[in-house]
Design a binder for these strands. Structure first.
Lengths: 109, 109
DNA sequence: CAATTATATCGTATATTTACGATAAAGGAG
DNA sequence: CTCCTTTATCGTAAATATACGATATAATTG
């Protein structure tokens, strides 16, 4: 059997080898982090793990309702986890999903 | 001189150690890739480097004007490069910026 | 129970994004 | 020069994102 010689692609600087639900999840994570205030919230959570919403409200120059909305976006994208703690909600980075993200990036970039 | 013993933070699953213009650039890249069609364009460019706009228009289910708009967003975020080639424009991944992105991710995640 | 604290959600206004058709601009072919 | 191809940009409509104040909910305090 003769081997077909396929035109080899010039080796690209990344593979972006991902599809389906995993791609959807990754794109959603990109989108959530593609907002300056949400990125700041993530940075704040690195240095203030377990802090509550009002800590973030005090830190950022936006209204409580807006912070709550951004927290929801980050949570639904999988970046953070909220734990109800009495009347407050305590937020942390979602370590499993962040590890998943790191590994995906390693594979596709 | 006595060393102040600071409360060590529980080691986080990422550092997000970035700020200023670099953070702005990274957030912009996240935002650009946080759109399903733009992610598809990036994937297409991995396997079709140097293709022209009309190739992408044929590939995607959206109008030529919309593709051109998405290409502009990707270009302004630094993901791709366009080269005018006769009446057409040939697009490639922007290798330097992608390398920059990969290194930033390595540092902060 | 009443008051306080903390937060999510609702309703809504404004801004941005996304999409399209139409058109302009620029190069190549006849 | 005229026609064709290719693409970017303009104008604009529709959808989505972002922001806020007001309000609802739920736990704690006095």
């Amino acid at each position: 059997m003769k081997e077909l010689k396929l035109n080899p692609l010039p080796s690209a600087c990344c593979t972006l080898d991902i599809s389906g639900k995993e791609q959807d999840k990754l794109v959603k994570m990109f989108k959530a982090l593609g907002n300056p205030l949400r990125f700041e919230i993530m940075k704040f959570l690195v240095t203030h793990p377990g802090c509550i919403t009002s800590d973030i409200v005090d830190y950022l120059p936006i209204a409580q309702a807006t912070v709550s909305q951004h927290l929801r976006v980050l949570r639904e994208a999988g970046w953070i986890e909220g734990t109800v703690d009495g009347p407050a909600t305590s937020y942390c980075l979602h370590e499993d999903n962040i590890t998943w993200f790191r590994n995906q990036i390693k594979v596709i970039f």
